[in-house]
Simulated assay, not measured.
Amino acid sequence: MLKIEELQKRIDELLLKAGLPRHSVNLCTAPVGDGTPYISFENGKYNYIFSERGYEFFRKITESTDELLYWIMSELAYKIAFKYELENRIEGRDGRRIAFPKFIELMTKINPLWKLKAEDEIKKTLSASPYDDSLYL
């Protein structure tokens, strides 16, 4: 397991590799209180936790540093992809048609080995909630 400083260094390297601003992701090891995710280290595992005002919304647990890095970077990639969609919105079209390919593009830039994982994540999302342009008319 990597220490928080080592994880931050790895994140900074991935950001640089993808051409994203350094300090786009600042890792925390305790709740900030505003929904910012943080990392805890318990029983030899990483815990990636989202909480706000003392209420835990979501927790992912892994032993894999690569998996943790994927989760952290995908959070940023989704934010960037949906900002891109907002700036390039097409009236009457499900915005995910623009955001999802951008997300996959970003994740591939960050780490080419993550492309298939990102594509699979999008496929699962779309199988549960297919594109529906009628919602945007």
Rank of each mutant, 00 (worst) to 15 (best):
M1E: 04
L2R: 03
I4E: 06
I4K: 13
E5D: 11
E6F: 05
L7V: 09
L7N: 00
Q8E: 07
K9C: 05
K9A: 14
R10S: 11
I11N: 06
D12S: 15
E13G: 07
L14W: 01
L14K: 00
L14F: 02
L15Y: 05
L15T: 03
A18C: 03
G19H: 07
L20I: 11
P21C: 09
R22E: 14
R22P: 10
R22H: 12
R22M: 11
N26K: 12
N26I: 12
L27R: 00
T29G: 06
A30R: 10
P31S: 01
P31R: 00
V32D: 13
V32N: 10
V32L: 14
G35P: 04
G35R: 09
T36S: 12
T36V: 10
T36K: 12
Y38T: 01
F41V: 03
E42V: 15
G44P: 03
G44M: 06
Y46G: 02
N47C: 04
Y48T: 00
Y48S: 00
I49F: 00
I49T: 14
I49G: 06
F50Q: 10
F50S: 01
S51P: 02
E52G: 09
G54A: 13
Y55L: 13
Y55D: 13
E56Q: 15
E56M: 15
F57V: 07
F57T: 10
F58D: 10
R59G: 06
R59M: 06
T62L: 09
T62V: 12
E63F: 07
E63R: 13
T65P: 05
T65F: 03
T65Y: 01
D66S: 12
D66A: 05
E67V: 11
E67D: 15
W71Q: 10
S74E: 15
S74N: 02
L76I: 07
L76S: 07
A77S: 15
Y78P: 03
K79V: 07
I80V: 09
I80C: 01
A81V: 09
F82N: 04
F82P: 02
F82R: 00
K83D: 15
K83G: 11
Y84F: 09
E85H: 03
E85L: 02
E85D: 10
L86F: 03
E87W: 05
R89E: 12
E91H: 13
G92K: 14
D94S: 09
G95N: 04
R96E: 04
R97F: 05
I98N: 08
A99T: 05
A99I: 08
F100P: 05
F100K: 10
P101W: 08
P101F: 08
E105I: 06
E105K: 07
E105M: 00
L106P: 06
M107T: 03
K109G: 03
K109L: 07
K109I: 02
K109W: 04
K109A: 00
I110T: 12
I110M: 03
N111H: 04
W114M: 11
K115G: 04
K115E: 07
K115H: 05
L116T: 06
L116R: 10
L116N: 12
L116F: 06
L116E: 15
A118K: 09
A118P: 08
E119P: 04
E119L: 10
E121V: 11
K124L: 14
T125V: 13
T125Q: 13
L126G: 02
S129V: 15
P130V: 09
Y131V: 10
D132W: 11
S134H: 08
L135R: 15
Y136G: 08
